[in-house]
Amino acid sequence: MTMENIYDRAITLGEYVPEPDDDRIICRCEEITKGEIRRAVHDGMYTITEIRRYLRTGMGLCQGQTCAKLVKSIVARELEVSPAVLEPATSRSPMRPIEMKIFAQEAKEVGDNV
């Protein structure tokens, strides 16, 4: 199975059925619940990138380190595909959050402090 299966956004997922643990927080940084993620899938957000832009999952300080796999498995289950099918969100610099004043301070003579 590949991403192909979810390219056509007209496929129907059936009715959204609430689940008892829908209010469980999945993305701790942005406080996004399982139910919100499931609903987003039903709203048409089929890729991890779309979910993230729609809900902010994985956009917090931990940059998705904790929740990436969890979100993926919830989305995959909702779409009835294997989690491996879903491309994870793109990785972007900085790999760890960095203060503006430090990022702004590029060492003049590079390598001096090494």
């Binding site: 972007r92 900085p94 760890r96 960095i98 990022f103 301070q105 590029e106 402090n113």
Partner: peptide
């Protein structure tokens, strides 16, 4: 901090990036 084109990396050390 990141790995960029042409095998360049940026490294945070202390209060600077290199």
């Amino acid at each position: 901090v990141g790995m960029y084109m042409d095998k360049e990396i940026v490294v945070k050390m202390g209060e600077e990036v290199h």
